[in-house]
Design a protein around this nucleic acid. Sequence first.
DNA 1: TGAATTCCGAGTTATTCACTCATGTTTGCC
DNA 2: GGCAAACATGAGTGAATAACTCGGAATTCA
Lengths: 145, 145
Amino acid sequence: MKLSTRGRYGIHAMYDLAKYADGGPQSIKAISEREGIPEAYLEQLIAPLKRAGLVTSTRGAQGGYTLARAPEEITVGDVLRALEGGLSLVDCLDEEDACGKSCACASRIVWMKLRDGLNAIVDGITLRDMITEYERQCAQEDKTT
Amino acid sequence: MKLSTRGRYGIHAMYDLAKYADGGPQSIKAISEREGIPEAYLEQLIAPLKRAGLVTSTRGAQGGYTLARAPEEITVGDVLRALEGGLSLVDCLDEEDACGKSCACASRIVWMKLRDGLNAIVDGITLRDMITEYERQCAQEDKTT
DNA sequence: TGAATTCCGAGTTATTCACTCATGTTTGCC
DNA sequence: GGCAAACATGAGTGAATAACTCGGAATTCA
């Protein structure tokens, strides 16, 4: 019931890209150093994000990655679904007929409620929200210097 | 991001106990056969449920397990928390200071919202709800015989 | 041209999951 | 009393998955 590092690192990386959205393409190296993500591993995580159309890449020297849309138009759900592959907590919702009969299982109702509820939550948080809420809650620490 | 079999089997088992709540103690063997759970494994899963005070056991011949409370007073959340050990999707919420600074992480806000939202969902579903909703949605299948 | 960077696929290691097994203890029933 | 049906517990195991690593090719800028 834990999120894998894929999801966690993914959110961190996307948040990082959101913060540096105006600074031109950000290299894997820069992101991984700032966020403390193993460089070679981050490379693997960003591929699905690109496939999902959440980031765009520019190759070659001075290249890197940029958000494909504005931070307010990318949700935490977009990122997690790209990396974790669907937020259903149980396989029997994705596969057809994974456990015999479709309606013959009372638990199914529970899993569906969980899935829908989870999706609603993560789709309600954008990268922009993360930035603004973080500043609102923790800004005093930066100001006291 | 998947629920483990512990959680899934646990819900099945508890739902089973709720259905047979008036039939005296149910043995591991009976539950495992009805729900398709490996007998020796179920034994391991029911231990934490007992520790959490959700079921009571009677030893010896003709013994077994019974719900400790009425089905309407046991939530899916109770069961999942007992078996999955806390529904936070990320360790940094449980441990103190798992990632350095507590407030220095914008993702933390996300994880907290997820945890709280998830808990609200699972605590809103009781075993009784499972029974009644299942009957409401799937009863016609039984009636057409 | 050469350095910086993305891209791609395969390989590796450590951990966790999903069980099994062996053994002991308690209790009802004949 | 004694046997069989249950719970109780802790250790062990095989397979799967997670979390990386590595090597090398393709691309682009200066």
